[in-house]
């Protein structure tokens, strides 16, 4: 196991370098210009724009820019945002806590809903609960978050007036009221995301359970007259967790990267909304930094998933 881990970590470094080079190239080639506002503004002479381009190093070849970026990154210098002229790491760090809080809790809620329901539905396929869960799940992923988000706002903020729909990071309250207000404003974004996620998780868990439940060793265990409960937990759940672990590992980087649509709807100042604004403004240093951290997390969690497979099913070897 240790050898495997070491090997994988060693591979991770060059593979991340390769990914970062490709990311950088895509961003450099993608259309758009960080100084577009300047160009359409009759007040700014083209020379100023040109000198800014030069001072930001945008006129150099892509490879030179990439090497410069990497050298700076290695020194811990993330560069600065073209749009706000602030250091990129400061910008990202301002967003991380909110993102982890909102997106992270939605993932937890989604799993808490999906795993038990999926397990039950998988063990008793076509039972009433299974049918209901299925139908709700289909509704869940037929409706995109931009739609459910607005539906929630109309019902809970405007019609009933129970919840605020603009997320604020600096709440004016203090003490328990601060916690309460913070909780209230997180309800809608978290549930919109959690329900969307839970819909697909439920279906995956159910499918995995169905598959596993039919395998020979489970039948053997059942035939041996083992307690059905322990069969469920020890034999089925454990093996059925493999796809779930895969999915969670796929989702974990998003806990950092944010959910762009939901963040826009509820104005959650997360990394997702930072990323989309930066993309629209062609603020390449920010986009590059966020996607690179995201890529690191993707690689990391893929590795974690592989380790967990080995734990869930000791026969798995690489």
């Amino acid at each position: 196991m240790a050898g495997f881990l070491l090997r994988r970590l060693l591979i991770a470094v060059p593979s991340l370098l390769g990914i970062s080079l490709i990311l950088f190239t895509v961003l450099a080639l993608a259309p758009g210009d960080p100084f577009s506002e300047m160009a359409t503004n009759p007040n700014v002479p083209p020379e100023v724009r040109e000198s800014l381009r030069a001072s930001f190093g945008l006129n150099d070849p892509i490879l030179v820019r990439y090497l410069r970026w990497m050298a700076a990154m290695a020194r811990g210098d993330w560069g600065f945002s073209f749009a706000s002229r602030i250091n990129v790491d400061t910008l990202i760090l301002q967003r991380v806590p909110t993102t982890i809080l909102v997106i992270g809790s939605s993932q937890v809620v989604a799993l808490l809903i999906a795993v038990p329901i999926g397990l039950y539905a998988g063990i008793r396929p076509y039972s009433l609960l299974d049918q209901v869960a299925n139908t709700l799940a289909f509704v869940g992923f037929s409706l995109p978050t931009f739609f459910t988000g607005i539906l929630f706002i109309l019902v809970f903020s405007i019609h009933l007036g129970w919840l605020p729909f603009v997320y604020q990071t600096d709440l004016a309250a203090s003490g328990w009221r601060w916690w309460w207000e913070g909780f209230r404003q997180a309800i809608m974004p978290v549930s919109v995301l959690a329900l969307f996620q839970a819909a697909s998780y439920t279906r995956y868990v159910r499918a995995a359970v169905l598959d596993v439940a039919r395998l020979d060793y489970v039948r053997t265990a059942q035939a041996k007259g083992l307690n059905p409960r322990s069969v469920t937990l020890r034999h089925i759940a454990r093996n059925a967790m493999i796809p779930v672990v895969t999915l969670v590992a796929l989702q974990m980087p998003i806990v950092f990267g944010g959910a762009i649509v939901t963040e826009q709807i509820f104005r959650v100042p997360g990394v997702g909304s930072l990323l989309i604004t930066a993309m629209l403004a062609n603020d390449t240093p920010v986009v590059m930094a966020v996607t690179f951290v995201f890529a690191c997390l993707v690689v990391l969690f893929n590795l974690v998933a592989d380790l967990l497979y080995g734990w869930l099913d000791p026969r798995i070897s690489f």
Binding site: I150, S157, I158, F165, V166, I265, R267, S273
Partner: peptide
């Protein structure tokens, strides 16, 4: 001054929910 989101929901936050 809070930023972000879209114009329609900004109007909602003032005209309908009164948050702003």
């Amino acid at each position: 001054v809070k930023g972000g989101g879209d114009a329609v929901s900004a109007a909602r936050a003032v005209l309908q929910s009164g948050e702003y």
